[in-house]
Amino acid sequence: MSGLARLVGGPADIGRGPVFWSLVALTLLGFALYPSAVSEFQVSNTAYYLLNIPLGLGMALLWGYCGVLSFGHVAYFGIAGYSYGVIAGNLSDSPSGPVVGALGGLLVSAVVAGVFGYFVFYARVQKWIIPILTLVLTLLLETFLGQTAGYQWRIGSVLLGGYNGMTGIPSFGFGEFEFQGTSFYYLCLVLVLACYFGLRMLLNSGFGQVVVAIREDELRTETLGYDIRARQWAVFVLSAVLAGLSGLLYVQWGNYITPSQVGLLQAALPVIWTAVGGSTSLLAVVIATFALNWLTYTLSSEGNQYAMVIIGALLVVTMLFFPRGIVVMLAEHLDRLLPRARREARR
């Protein structure tokens, strides 16, 4: 296999061979044609399901591939969203405001994750401490943002808005052009593809192999000459940036954000998507994130008050009966059913 083919088709994720890639191409074609077949409202909803995928991918990278669990990745989602709102809102007269805001949002997420990650990874804390501290961080962020109501809580001309949240956040765009409706949908689609294939290649590279080795056996990997603290830190920051990307897209989608986006219920969602999909497969998490966002939306828009109970119960059931993830286990089942010829082609 040539270099690029090996990076994309390597063993880091499920799905190989001509049948698989044909299916991927067909699905993509479907997504590309989708806006021309449905209403603008449906396009906007689908864009919402798509924009959560980078957050899910970040969780899969951190939890499934690196073995580090974070219960507070929505903090970076929120930090990027609020930072974008503040920067782009203050630069609303400048045509480059949204771009500066987007870069600023990702940077602030990365810096906060970097400082936090320094404390936990360089202390070599036990594995269970990281999810707890990340959860505490996001709860604190929610509390802080919740008490920022009133005129005294403003940065430049932008109000933080307390529990009512920040409103009137500018859409993303270049100069005169704004991403809205269908163009925003395509923006999300392209970014999701870039994140997925980028991560798939990263995890098939030497870096990814070491990340997986750390998950399997930290001590053995360290005694092969790797600074595992630095690797875990880097993966943590990268996954926070991915969460930040979802946060950016979220505030551009609805033009608002509230503190509940970094609250306990939201914090649980990426963990649920990742667990239900199967944390050791990027593709499975992409599918689960999309499907569960659709499910949550459909359940709650029908006025079903059991939505969150169902989602929580789904997590418990998955952990009990499908510990490797529902999508991953279905994929393995499918793989066994397919003819032997396909398995040969995979090699």
Binding site: L219, T223, L224, G225, Y226, D227
Partner: peptide, 20 residues
């Protein structure tokens, strides 16, 4: 740290096998 010593040229195996 362990990894720094390894980079100076030490290698070790463990009593219980720890290949991946």
């Amino acid at each position: 740290q362990a990894f720094q010593r390894v980079r100076l040229g030490v290698g070790l195996t463990f009593q219980t096998n720890r290949a991946f």
